[in-house]
Simulated scan of single mutants.
Amino acid sequence: MNIRSLTRGDGVVIGAAVLLFIASFLDFYSVDCSGEFCNDSSVPSTWESELFPVLPSIYLAGLIAAGLIVAARFQPAGRKLAGLGLEQWGMALSAFAAWTALWTILGGPDVDSVGPGIGQILGLLAALALAAGAVLSTRIPALQAPLLGTPGQPAPSPYGAGPNPGYGYPGQQGGPSPYGAQQGQPGGQQPQPYGGQQQVQQPGPAAGPAGDFAPFWFAVPVARPLYAEDGSPRPIAELAPGTWYLAVEQRGPALVAQTQDGRRGVLQDTSGIQRG
Score class of each variant (00 low, 15 high):
245 Y>F: 13
38 C>T: 12
222 V>S: 12
213 F>M: 02
229 E>N: 12
223 A>V: 07
48 E>P: 09
158 P>Q: 13
108 G>H: 06
99 W>S: 15
219 A>T: 15
36 E>R: 13
45 S>T: 15
261 D>Q: 08
236 I>F: 05
81 L>A: 09
169 Y>K: 03
239 L>A: 14
5 S>L: 05
61 A>M: 11
239 L>F: 00
103 W>S: 10
127 A>Q: 09
71 A>L: 12
148 L>S: 07
137 S>D: 09
85 G>V: 01
155 A>D: 12
72 A>W: 02
44 P>F: 01
169 Y>W: 15
271 S>I: 05
255 L>S: 04
28 F>W: 15
81 L>Y: 02
89 W>V: 08
238 E>P: 07
104 T>M: 12
151 P>D: 05
66 A>I: 08
162 G>S: 15
151 P>F: 04
185 Q>Y: 05
172 Q>P: 06
11 G>A: 15
20 L>P: 01
233 P>R: 13
209 P>R: 02
67 G>M: 06
95 A>C: 11
181 A>L: 04
98 A>F: 04
217 W>V: 11
257 A>P: 05
153 Q>Y: 04
78 G>D: 04
242 G>C: 03
57 S>Y: 10
272 G>I: 11
11 G>P: 12
177 S>N: 12
231 G>E: 11
39 N>Q: 15
131 A>L: 11
47 W>I: 03
85 G>C: 02
47 W>S: 04
264 R>E: 13
